[in-house]
Every structure is written in C-alpha cells, then in structure tokens.
Amino acid sequence: MKKIVPFFVALLVISCGSDDSSTTTTPEEQMYFPPIGSTTWETKTVQSLGWNQSQVQPLLDYLELKHTKSFIVLHNGKIVLENYFNGHSANEPWYWASAGKTLTTAVTGIAEEEGYLNINNKVSDYLGTGWTSIPLAKENLITNKHLLTMTSGLNDALGDDVTPANLQYVADAGTRWAYHNVYVKLQDVVAASTGQSWSNYFNTKLRDRIGMTGGSWIQNGGLSVYWSTPRNMARFGLLALNNGKWENNQIVPQNYFQNATTTSQNLNLAYGYMWWLNGKTSFRLPQSQLQFNGTLIPSAPSDMYCALGKNDQKIYVVPSRKLVIIRMGDVADGVNFALSDFDETLWEKISAVIN
C-alpha cells in the first residue's frame, strides 16, 4: 500500500532541501560516445528501458520486408537495436544519398566558425561569377544560406547536373523553395575558401574527429555521394543529437547547429539547413510546389529532425527521447527523393516498441 505524504510535509522538504542524497531520484545517465578508433560500442537492452519487447519482432519483420539492409537504434548513445537484413553486414558500406546533405551542412558551419566563409555572403564571392547561366544581377542574389535552405531560385526540374548551363533562373533567390542538388556547390565554396579539397577538409574537421572511419565521397552523375558503414552514420546521428558536440569537443558550432535544425525560411516550415523538421504546421516536398498542411511524419515525435535520402536512407534524431535511429537499404516501396509513406508506417512500429 502506498503512503501518501501530506502536502505541507512535501512542501517543507522541497523548500528546505535535504542533505540525504538517498532520497533523490537516480542520477541521469551520462551520454555515451563510442571511442574513436575502436569497434567497441556499449549496448543496453529493450527491457532495461521498459520498452515493449513483444513489438520488436514485428518491427524487424517489417524492416526486412521493406528491403532494409541495416537498422540501428541508439538511446543516450548506446546501441539498443542493431540488425542487418537481406545479405548486408555491419562492415559493408552503403550510400547516404541526400541524407548526406547534412554532412555538407555541418562542414559549412565548421568552415564559417574557422573564418573561411560567411553563410550570408553571396556564392560568387567564393566561386567567381558565371557559376550559373542566369543574369549576373540574379546570380549575385544567391547566398550560401540560400543553398543551405533550398531557396536559390534555380530551376529544380533539370536533373542532377550542376554545371553552369544547367543552373537556370526560375525566381529570385529567397522567394521560392525547391529541393535542388545545387546545394553541392557549398562543397566548392568550402574548398575554395579553405584552400583544401572538399574531402580532405571534411575528413580532418568532421569524419576523423568523431571516428567515422573508412567512409568516402564517391562521384555519381556529377554529384559527390557519401558512403559509409551503418555505425558511421550512427556516429553522425549521435553528433546531431548532441547539437554538434562529441564528448567535450564542440565539432559543429552549437548556435549554427541549432539554426540548422529549426525552420530556416517561411516557405517550407519543415526545413532547416538541409535537415527535415517534424512537428510543423505545414511542409513541402521535393519536385513539387504544393504546400501540405499538417506535420511531416504524424506518428513520430514532434521534436524529431531527420536526414532523409533517396530510396529511404534515414537518420532520425529525437532529442526528447534521446534517440538516434538509422535505416539504410533499398527503396521500401516506390522511388522517392526523401520522405515516403514508409516513414509513417515505420514510425508507427517504432512507437509500438518505445512507448
């Protein structure tokens, strides 16, 4: 039978405090970071978190059915679930597709912190004029921030080619949101401003500092696409959960990262600096100028932000639950550029486990 503490006694304890630490709640678990240069990664169990073990297998069955290759769930940095399907293995790299846009976001922030660039400056300050085929006055409207927020005003219907001839005018920068691979020009901005190759600066300033060993940028149709093991993707997700901080080292500036994971413009409320944002009142999707009312993934926590890549490459980050969730694999259903119906159903099944 539970004892009921009278209100005035409880109030007295709260107001006066207590020297007896045994009366306080259990200290909050410290965030865990896997060691750099080691394959060691601490784990915890579904049962220890009070999650629903009976719903784990239905989740895994669904993932396998939907052509998943790898699935990882971190809680407070420790691995709770790590599963591989359809012939994939832990040491086998896979492509991030547009989930890797957030890597470019992070490195741009690092370069700005180091004084090499300013995201509010125009792109032509770094690449020179003529990096598009649009009139110079219009080209000079496009800033680095417009590339980060998908508001360059360039034509998004011309494919992945980002050579000048294929970068054509549709609207003034800042007046139109459109998902466009012109963001990759930020990699050129970083290279030009730092005097280093993109991959070298990325490796030394981000990859190596959080232990994302072995990953690499591979050219694909004029774009540089990142490939890595699932655990390396999980490391980046853990960095994101901690607002750009790895243990005691602030890798990506905290204020910049917080700006990157909040609404960055008023055209697509569910978009930051190449991070997708849940819990907003409306959103837009790639290859469309339609605005949809409601939240991006209704079955997911409202504070979630995510990196979404073609054919269902996913990094979900949920600060309120201290979760990072990774999904790599082939497309679940039909070909998509970022979000798909798969996200909603997947989150229904994840929620059945964690709630």
Score class of each variant (00 low, 15 high):
K185W: 05
N242V: 09
K185N: 02
K205H: 15
A171E: 03
L186C: 08
I251L: 11
M150L: 12
F236Y: 15
I251A: 07
G244A: 12
A137Q: 15
L136I: 01
S133G: 04
L167Q: 01
V184C: 03
Q168R: 15
P164E: 09
N248Q: 12
N155C: 10
V252E: 07
G174R: 07
T262K: 14
K245G: 08
L148V: 05
H180F: 01
G159A: 11
N155Q: 12
A260C: 06
N232Q: 15
A178G: 13
A171D: 04
L186R: 05
T194K: 06
N203F: 05
N242A: 07
A240D: 12
A137I: 04
A240Q: 15
A191E: 11
Y179W: 06
A171L: 04
P164Y: 02
Y183S: 02
H180A: 01
E139N: 05
T263K: 07
L238R: 11
S224Q: 05
K185M: 03
V184Y: 04
R235H: 11
N232E: 14
S152A: 08
T132S: 11
V182Q: 02
L148I: 08
I210K: 06
Y256V: 09
N155M: 08
R207V: 03
R235A: 02
G221Q: 12
D172G: 06
P135T: 02
I134L: 00
G130C: 08
A137W: 09
L241G: 07
L147A: 05
S216N: 12
S193V: 10
T229L: 06
W246Q: 03
Q219A: 13
K185I: 04
